[in-house]
Lab assay of single mutants.
Amino acid sequence: MQNSHSGVNQLGGVFVNGRPLPDSTRQKIVELAHSGARPCDISRILQVSNGCVSKILGRYYETGSIRPRAIGGSKPRVATPEVVSKIAQYKRECPSIFAWEIRDRLLSEGVCTNDNIPSVSSINRVLRNLASEKQQMGADGMYDKLRMLNGQTGSWGTRPGWYPGTSVPGQPTQDGCQQQEGGGENTNSISSNGEDSDEAQMRLQLKRKLQRNRTSFTQEQIEALEKEFERTHYPDVFARERLAAKIDLPEARIQVWFSNRRAKWRREEKLRNQRRQASNTPSHIPISSSFSTSVYQPIPQPTTPVSSFTSGSMLGRTDTALTNTYSALPPMPSFTMANNLPMQPPVPSQTSSYSCMLPTSPSVNGRSYDTYTPPHMQTHMNSQPMGTSGTTSTGLISPGVSVPVQVPGSEPDMSQYWPRLQ
């Protein structure tokens, strides 16, 4: 039975679970980093996980050691009161100082060594604690504590007292930064006198190289990059290397530039699409467009005044059976039934097929058609009795279509119309 579990990581490298990497692998990681390889490249070359490479390099940059820390136990506290007071002093002298600059000053002034120097995250935590204590304490208590930490007896009751030896409130920041720059020169002199001055200088240079600022491109470089971006948004590694040799930039910087440029292009394309949609959409909808001609068919113009009344309900007709019959029939052209047409008796099958359309009241044959006459024609229609054979009435077949029909004066039988409509 094995005491430890061995495995293979996602890159194909072998590791022992819970145990640190061998010293030979750690040394190779540092050597590759000094030669300029990126952590992701080191991870692929040595088949070590990216997190492990970053952790080893980060500890090497901070402490200069590649040895693993002790497994188990607690780390001794490195942010001692003396170190905290120095950090507060540096922050007062130059409020814009960075944590890694404070760390360098602690090393250069001999406050800490490589073994007990606090990390950048520890210094940031100390600065946050100082800021929170400043908010919790009152103004007087804060000034007393700062005077105690600074070891001075001057008056701290006013704002300019934060910067000793100065009279203009805006000047101390520059003086403090100048003092810090002077301390940086002392850093070089002190570290050069040490035993491991060369190694420390190499480590600091490598650290500065990794902690780079934003790349500033010249106009020629920007023009070359934009020209390549117009050709393709995704250049391959050969195109990037050719462009890197042409404009004297690292291939990694060119790759990052193209990634950022593609993101910018997507944002601009989104804005262009929004403007295009806004320009195509009308600002207001016309009133006429809300009524579609496919839904509402136009009603033909009436030929006679009587045809303006298109349904039985508008003429005072309360018989719903006839109203439904007229509205359900398709529109037909106007025609006239003459008196000489043969009077065919209704076929029983045809009569039964339209039995649902006729009223059940037996008085329908005896009703006159003056009910369908509009009010303004009552006088004219009353002067001509319906009993004469020459009287013409208008029957409504569908809305908007008038059918003048000659009705025999002897017997106005409704059943004569249905064979004609089939």
Rank of each mutant, 00 (worst) to 15 (best):
residue 3 N to E: 10
residue 4 S to A: 13
residue 4 S to E: 11
residue 6 S to G: 09
residue 6 S to L: 15
residue 7 G to V: 07
residue 7 G to F: 07
residue 7 G to S: 15
residue 9 N to G: 01
residue 10 Q to S: 11
residue 10 Q to K: 15
residue 12 G to M: 03
residue 13 G to N: 01
residue 13 G to T: 02
residue 13 G to C: 01
residue 13 G to K: 04
residue 15 F to I: 04
residue 16 V to H: 14
residue 16 V to C: 10
residue 17 N to R: 15
residue 18 G to E: 02
residue 18 G to H: 00
residue 19 R to Y: 07
residue 19 R to V: 05
residue 19 R to P: 02
residue 19 R to W: 05
residue 20 P to R: 01
residue 21 L to I: 05
residue 21 L to Q: 04
residue 22 P to I: 07
residue 23 D to S: 06
residue 23 D to R: 07
residue 24 S to P: 10
residue 24 S to L: 09
residue 25 T to R: 08
residue 26 R to W: 01
residue 26 R to V: 01
residue 26 R to H: 00
residue 26 R to P: 02
residue 27 Q to E: 10
residue 29 I to N: 02
residue 30 V to S: 02
residue 31 E to C: 07
residue 31 E to D: 15
residue 31 E to S: 09
residue 31 E to H: 06
residue 32 L to S: 02
residue 32 L to M: 12
residue 33 A to R: 14
residue 33 A to V: 07
residue 33 A to P: 01
residue 34 H to N: 14
residue 34 H to Q: 11
residue 34 H to V: 09
residue 34 H to R: 11
residue 35 S to D: 12
residue 35 S to K: 10
residue 35 S to N: 10
residue 35 S to Q: 14
residue 36 G to V: 03
residue 37 A to W: 11
residue 38 R to V: 02
residue 40 C to A: 09
residue 40 C to N: 04
residue 40 C to Y: 05
residue 41 D to N: 07
residue 43 S to G: 06
residue 43 S to D: 01
residue 43 S to I: 01
residue 44 R to G: 03
residue 45 I to Q: 13
residue 45 I to C: 08
residue 45 I to A: 14
residue 46 L to D: 02
residue 46 L to N: 01
residue 46 L to S: 02
residue 46 L to K: 02
residue 49 S to K: 00
residue 49 S to W: 04
residue 49 S to Q: 00
residue 49 S to Y: 01
residue 50 N to L: 06
residue 50 N to H: 06
residue 51 G to D: 01
residue 51 G to N: 03
residue 52 C to W: 00
residue 53 V to S: 03
residue 53 V to P: 00
residue 53 V to C: 04
residue 54 S to F: 04
residue 54 S to T: 08
residue 59 R to E: 01
residue 60 Y to R: 01
residue 61 Y to K: 15
residue 61 Y to E: 06
residue 62 E to S: 14
residue 62 E to R: 15
residue 63 T to Y: 00
residue 63 T to C: 05
residue 63 T to W: 01
residue 63 T to V: 03
residue 64 G to W: 01
residue 64 G to V: 01
residue 64 G to H: 06
residue 64 G to R: 04
residue 65 S to R: 05
residue 66 I to H: 07
residue 66 I to T: 08
residue 66 I to G: 00
residue 67 R to S: 09
residue 67 R to L: 09
residue 69 R to P: 01
residue 69 R to D: 02
residue 69 R to K: 14
residue 69 R to G: 06
residue 70 A to S: 11
residue 71 I to E: 02
residue 71 I to D: 01
residue 72 G to R: 06
residue 73 G to K: 07
residue 74 S to E: 01
residue 74 S to C: 06
residue 74 S to V: 03
residue 74 S to M: 04
residue 75 K to V: 05
residue 75 K to P: 02
residue 76 P to K: 10
residue 78 V to F: 03
residue 78 V to W: 01
residue 80 T to M: 04
residue 81 P to Q: 08
residue 81 P to L: 07
residue 82 E to G: 09
residue 83 V to C: 08
residue 84 V to G: 03
residue 84 V to H: 04
residue 85 S to T: 11
residue 86 K to W: 07
residue 86 K to R: 14
residue 86 K to E: 08
residue 87 I to P: 01
residue 88 A to W: 15
residue 89 Q to W: 10
residue 89 Q to E: 09
residue 89 Q to N: 13
residue 90 Y to H: 14
residue 91 K to P: 01
residue 92 R to H: 13
residue 94 C to K: 10
residue 94 C to N: 15
residue 94 C to S: 13
residue 96 S to E: 12
residue 96 S to W: 11
residue 97 I to G: 15
residue 97 I to M: 15
residue 97 I to C: 14
residue 97 I to W: 09
residue 98 F to Y: 13
residue 99 A to T: 06
residue 99 A to C: 06
residue 100 W to K: 12
residue 100 W to S: 08
residue 100 W to P: 07
residue 100 W to F: 07
residue 101 E to W: 06
residue 102 I to G: 05
residue 102 I to M: 14
residue 102 I to P: 02
residue 103 R to H: 07
residue 104 D to G: 09
residue 104 D to E: 14
residue 105 R to H: 09
residue 105 R to N: 10
residue 106 L to N: 00
residue 107 L to N: 14
residue 107 L to C: 08
residue 108 S to Q: 11
residue 111 V to L: 08
residue 111 V to P: 13
residue 111 V to D: 10
residue 112 C to H: 05
residue 113 T to E: 14
residue 113 T to N: 10
residue 114 N to D: 09
residue 114 N to I: 09
residue 115 D to A: 14
residue 115 D to E: 12
residue 115 D to T: 15
residue 117 I to T: 15
residue 117 I to E: 06
residue 118 P to Y: 01
residue 118 P to R: 00
residue 118 P to G: 05
residue 120 V to E: 07
residue 120 V to G: 08
residue 121 S to W: 00
residue 122 S to F: 00
residue 123 I to Y: 00
residue 123 I to L: 03
residue 124 N to Q: 11
residue 125 R to F: 04
residue 125 R to M: 02
residue 125 R to C: 00
residue 125 R to T: 00
residue 129 N to V: 09
residue 129 N to I: 08
residue 130 L to P: 08
residue 130 L to I: 10
residue 130 L to V: 11
residue 131 A to H: 09
residue 131 A to S: 08
residue 131 A to G: 07
residue 132 S to D: 06
residue 133 E to A: 13
residue 134 K to Q: 11
residue 134 K to H: 00
residue 134 K to W: 09
residue 134 K to C: 11
residue 134 K to D: 08
residue 135 Q to F: 11
residue 135 Q to L: 11
residue 136 Q to W: 10
residue 137 M to P: 12
residue 138 G to Q: 14
residue 138 G to L: 13
residue 139 A to H: 11
residue 139 A to E: 12
residue 140 D to V: 12
residue 141 G to T: 12
residue 141 G to D: 15
residue 143 Y to S: 13
residue 144 D to Q: 09
residue 144 D to W: 09
residue 144 D to N: 10
residue 144 D to T: 10
residue 145 K to A: 14
residue 145 K to W: 11
residue 145 K to V: 12
residue 147 R to L: 14
residue 147 R to C: 11
residue 147 R to T: 13
residue 148 M to E: 12
residue 148 M to V: 13
residue 149 L to V: 13
residue 150 N to Y: 06
residue 150 N to Q: 14
